[in-house]
Amino acid sequence: MEAGDYARTKVEAVAKYAPADVHYARVRLATDGPRLVTVHASLDVNGKPVNAEAAAETYQEAVDLLHDRLQHRLVSMGR
């Protein structure tokens, strides 16, 4: 699976934890030097911005970290 597809799939999966409708989600992958991948996500949850960022040696690791951070933030919003 390509990096962008993997990131989209993981962010779509975490959207179910949002306490309201997700109007849009944007994911950006970038390399920071020869051995670091950074991934950033911005979601609009019914008008409230939710942002998260993660970095790791591979895009899968970075996206998985991002997924966990987004899940935590979205669950916290619903409390």
Rank of each mutant, 00 (worst) to 15 (best):
Y17P: 14
E2M: 02
V50L: 00
V45Q: 01
M1S: 12
E57V: 09
A20C: 04
P34R: 06
V75G: 02
K10Q: 10
H67E: 11
V14T: 06
S76G: 00
E2T: 07
Y17D: 03
V63T: 15
Y59E: 02
A18P: 15
R26C: 15
D64N: 05
L65P: 03
L66M: 04
Y59N: 02
P49R: 09
R73A: 11
G33K: 00
Y24S: 15
E57M: 04
E12K: 14
Y59S: 07
T31F: 05
H72Q: 08
V27I: 14
A13R: 12
G4M: 15
E53W: 04
V22R: 08
A56N: 15
N51Y: 13
V45H: 01
D5N: 06
L66E: 11
V37N: 00
H67M: 07
N51P: 13
H72A: 06
A15V: 10
M1E: 05
P34F: 09
V37L: 00
S76H: 07
R26F: 03
Q60E: 04
K48Q: 08
T31I: 07
A25H: 14
R8P: 06
G33I: 02
A56I: 11
G33F: 12
V50E: 00
K16G: 12
E61N: 15
V11K: 01
V45G: 07
D68H: 15
A55S: 06
D21E: 10
T31V: 09
Q60M: 07
R8Q: 05
R26G: 09
Y17V: 13
A30M: 14
V75L: 06
D44M: 11
T9M: 15
T31H: 10
A52F: 13
L29T: 14
R79Q: 05
E57W: 04
A15I: 03
A3L: 02
T38D: 10
H40E: 05
R79E: 11
G33Y: 10
D21G: 09
G33M: 03
N51L: 12
V39K: 01
S42D: 07
A54D: 06
A30L: 06
R26D: 08
H67L: 11
D21N: 04
L65R: 12
Y24C: 12
A62G: 02
V63A: 08
G78R: 15
T38N: 03
A7K: 01
V75C: 01
D32T: 09
E61K: 04
R26P: 14
A41Q: 01
D44F: 10
G47N: 11
A20Y: 08
H40Y: 02
A62L: 00
M1V: 06
V63L: 14
K10E: 03
G33L: 02
T31N: 12
Y17H: 04
H23P: 07
E53P: 02
Y17K: 07
L43Q: 14
E61F: 14
R79P: 09
D32I: 10
L70H: 12
G78Q: 06
R79H: 07
A54N: 05
R79T: 13
